[in-house]
Structures are given as structure tokens and as C-alpha cells.
């Protein structure tokens, strides 16, 4: 029996909003330590790796390891039916072919439950190698999302160049060209509002706006984003 409860469903709502544009389907691997999800987008250009630790749930029970193949578009439809402050309970029997989602309103007056068929997805588990990056930039997630959104109006790709002074984002196309330079924050009073750069050596890399704008769908989940970069290595 698998049962996981969140007192507020908004974390899982944000997780679904973060991945549903990149992935059509994915396997939720449930074990007593939590839920792991790892999947590549259809073109294998990006890898989504997600971990929901059991201690992040208000109640978590997983008697036997369970892999739930989810159609994320359908799961997103179900999650849209939950209010942010509803209690969410996800349940599945051990060798089930369905999963149920129950939402309870704060005042206990409204209880909704949704059942979704599970899919048989072939499992490929990829190892994510430890990498020593040339540059690691930590910056406000909202700021990065804003930069990607603004620059994607000017070109299909963004050039990110990082030195110890700061990080520059550039794009150019028919409409013109755009450069956004962020200096490293000198006096760090609020970590998650600062731009912090750890540089082994300068780096200049180019990425498609389409993917950056998909990744920044995860912005509501966290105040800070970390950009780890090296030549010829995935961002």
C-alpha cells in the first residue's frame, strides 16, 4: 500500500506545472525514502530529475517499492482541480493499475477524489555524473525567469557568458539584439536575492530559449536558481 499526504497541495501543483511542458509521461518511483522521478524530454535534449523526500510529506507510507507510470497531462488536469490549501492524499495499492488523488478542503466540507489509470513505462535509470563546473552562478530564480522570457523575444538562443565580475545574458535576431549584465553582489545580506558566482575559469555557452523557458516553469518552487556551467557539458 502506498499513501502520501500533503497538508497543502500547492507543492505538488507547482511540481506538475514545472514538468508537464517538458515531459508527456514519467514514472514516479516510490520507496520508503520518498518519490523519485527521472525522465528525458522527447528529443532527449534535457533530463528532469525530481526527488520528493518522504519527510516532506505530512504522512508517508510505502510498504513495498512501487513504480507508477503517470500520464503527466492527465495528472496535471487532476492537480488543477485542487485548491492550493487543500490537503492532498495520493494512494495506490501495491500491484495497482490505478492511483487515486483525494483533495480535502480546509474546512473539511468538501472532499474530492480522482482516479487515474497508471501506464506501463519502460524504466531507464541514468546516472548523473558528479561534475566539477567552470562556473556556478546562484541568483534569484525570478530574475533568471524574467531574463529568459525577455531575451527569447529577440532570438532563439541565449548566450550566457560568466566571469568573476558577473554574468551576461545575450540574444540577437531580426528584432535586434539584447544584453543583460548582472554584477556579482558585493555585500551579501540576503543570500536568495544575491548574485553569487564561483568561477574556476570563465565560460561562454549558448542555449535554446525554448528549453530555458521550460526549465524556468519551476521558478515558483524556489527563490534561488543555480546555473552550473562548463564548456561542452549540459547546463
Amino acid at each position: 500500500m502506498f499513501e502520501a499526504r500533503l497538508n497543502a497541495s500547492n507543492v505538488l501543483k507547482k511540481v506538475l506545472d514545472a514538468i508537464k511542458d517538458l515531459l508527456n509521461e514519467a514514472t514516479f518511483d516510490c520507496s520508503d525514502s520518498g518519490i523519485q522521478l527521472q525522465a528525458m524530454d522527447n528529443s532527449h535534449v534535457s533530463l528532469v530529475s525530481l526527488s520528493l523526500r518522504s519527510d516532506g510529506f505530512d504522512k508517508y507510507r510505502c510498504d513495498r517499492n512501487l513504480s507508477m507510470g503517470m500520464n503527466l497531462a492527465n495528472m496535471a488536469k487532476i492537480m488543477k482541480c485542487a485548491n492550493n490549501d487543500d490537503t492532498l492524499t495520493m494512494k495506490a495499492q501495491d500491484n495497482a493499475d490505478t492511483v487515486t488523488f483525494m483533495f480535502e478542503s480546509q474546512n473539511q466540507e468538501k472532499v474530492s477524489d480522482y482516479e487515474m489509470k497508471l501506464m506501463n513505462l519502460d524504466q531507464e535509470h541514468l546516472g548523473i555524473p558528479e561534475t566539477d563546473y567552470a562556473c556556478v552562478v546562484r541568483m534569484p530564480a525570478m530574475e533568471f525567469a524574467r531574463i529568459c522570457r525577455d531575451l527569447s523575444q529577440f532570438g532563439e538562443s541565449v548566450v550566457i557568458s560568466c566571469t568573476k565580475e558577473g554574468v551576461k545574458f545575450s540574444a540577437s535576431g531580426d528584432a535586434g539584439s539584447a544584453n543583460i549584465k548582472l554584477a556579482q553582489t558585493s555585500t551579501i545580506d540576503k543570500e536568495d536575492e544575491s548574485v553569487i558566482i564561483e568561477m574556476q575559469e570563465p565560460v561562454t555557452l549558448t542555449f535554446a530559449c525554448r528549453y530555458l523557458n521550460s526549465f524556468t516553469k519551476a521558478t515558483p518552487l524556489c527563490n534561488q536558481v543555480q546555473l552550473s556551467m562548463s564548456a561542452d557539458v549540459p547546463l
Partner: peptide
């Protein structure tokens, strides 16, 4: 136009 390339080769299949 530089295309974003697949990254499968970066992740050894465990």
C-alpha cells in the same frame, strides 16, 4: 542556426 543537441551520452546508463 546552432541546434540544441541530445545529451543522452552524458548520462551513463546505470
Amino acid at each position: 542556426k546552432q541546434r540544441q543537441t541530445a545529451i543522452t551520452s552524458f548520462f551513463p546508463n546505470t
